[in-house]
Design a protein around this nucleic acid. Structure first.
Lengths: 171, 171, 171, 171
DNA sequence: TAATAATCGAGACGGTACGTCATGTCTTAAG
DNA sequence: CTTAAGACATGACGTACCGTCTCGATTATTA
């Protein structure tokens, strides 16, 4: 069912991602979907969490290179990976629907942000980086442009990410 | 009709913003709306362009203070102004629908970006600022965090904006 | 305008005969039609009266042959003449709408029936025919099968008409 | 649903018989109607077939009296029974729409005509009647005046029916 | 091994909104 | 003063999904 949802989103966009279409695609009764997920947003959230844990883990090594690599992976994830489209679709849907916003925040953005905060703190402590803004501010300053670029169709390149890191974290 | 659409979005969210609801609210026939707008997205775009021209004009004076003021106004616009919700709703809808993406880019983001580019170029020429990234990259680096903050419900404060400007544009 | 209405009925059927279509076909504004006719039924009635006076006049000569010829002409009119379709359409519409029924009765069926009554009376007086039913009954008995045949798509042939006349009017 | 359709036709006429009105009257969703009937014509056809089988069966006994009774019942059915209005409405609609014509012919007129043909054949064989016209011609000659009378608002009386039978079938 | 329960597919149901079409009324500008 | 052009409020069209709801049929477990 997660695959069916994923495929539909990738192939036909969020508008075509209806519960009925997922059921059709997965060869499953509608009620079976409703038994396990309260909404299509939660289905997408499950696929996103799955895929993120596979190819977008927050690195353990608190080095400047690790941070750079993570941000470059994030930019590529949004630009190229089908799961990146899921991220964008959920971020979008959160603007239309408060329940989505809460779920997305709690199950995805929050945990990820916690890990990112820790990464930054350790790296700063180790002298690898020297952020001049607060932790959350610097994370928004790093992730914001990447996400905003993806949202507006102007993907940020690897060099762009590096320049951003240099600008904001250079010791 | 624009007011009706605006009000409905502000009061009940994007999900409740149906063509039929707008018609009901405005005391107007559905067909009358279809006569003038091909979709509710274009209605929102019109209200956004209207409202933006009133309270979010790109400043003429190419000074550091002008740029700071503009970005602070943008952050406040997204956080507090009902029209800011329209911006976020359109950016969100653009992720679900390619036609929205094209329209939003062409009628709103594009022209605004052109004005912003000119502003930055003049200010750099005047020595008011010294961006180390390319024009578009620096604009994304400035606007991205503000938008991302608004999308995730973490509004960027005036001081946050100032710090960002200091970091990225300080001569 | 009458031609436009006629043409549309003949080509695309009664369902496609809308006031807007007539206006379009005639190259005329809708309001111009409403100025002169209260409804499309009256337009059709006008065309039917026109066409009937041309090729379906009740004969003056009160002879058996005259009556036979009139009924054969009526059968052919319904089966082949485009104006015959107008007659059937109006008779049909009269079942759906009381105003049509009244108009059709008063402006078309009534006058025609009066002439037919007179024709039969004169012919009977002259000994050309010997109807055993009342005047209206015999007229219904003659016209009814022809109309019913046309309504059900089973046109009555010339010989069929003759046989009917022989059966009902034979002296 | 059939009752709702019937009631609406009887009370407000064919023009008010919209799918939405039937759904409203029956307390049912529009889609539920579309699930079972392709058009309102088929709904009416179903009610007509139901009602006809109850109170307008073609008699089994091939006697002159049986035929007379059947025709009188038909005349009364058209004049007084609400289901008679359904018959007239369908016959009318068949003039406006070829699909209705085909359906009405195949599901109602055709089967009924077959039974009537058999009735007449048996009665003729038994010497009860002596039709001088062909089977279909005589049926049209008998039914046509009754239907035409109903269509033009001039109901045929019981005596009128008897006279017609006497005239056309007398041995 | 048979009864019992959980899960499934299928799909009907009352709703709501879609975008289109024609209605009959109206206003405007040109002749 | 009539016309064409066409905007307007109204309301039905037939379609797509929504989320809820019964149905058997098919597994799994428990007695």
């Amino acid at each position: 069912m997660l695959h069916a949802a994923d495929d539909l989103l990738a192939e036909h966009g969020f508008a075509a991602l209806t519960i009925e279409a997922i059921a059709r695609e997965a060869g499953v009764a509608k009620q079976t979907i409703y038994r396990w997920w309260p909404s299509k947003v939660e289905i997408l959230l499950d696929t996103l969490i799955d895929d993120s844990s596979k190819c977008l883990a927050v690195p353990q090594s608190p080095t400047a290179a690790g941070i750079r690599g993570y941000l470059r992976a994030f930019a590529r994830f949004l630009a190229e990976n089908p799961a990146g489209k899921v991220f964008l679709a959920l971020l979008a849907q959160a603007q239309h629907d408060a329940a989505t916003a809460a779920s997305f925040q709690e199950r995805y953005l929050g945990p990820r942000r916690a890990a990112e905060r820790e990464l930054l703190a350790l790296a700063a402590e180790a002298g690898e980086i020297a952020p001049r803004l607060g932790v959350d501010a610097v994370l928004d300053a790093l992730l914001g442009p990447i996400v905003y670029g993806a949202l507006t169709g102007a993907a940020v390149s690897g060099e762009g990410v590096d320049a951003l890191v240099e600008e904001l974290l250079r010791p």
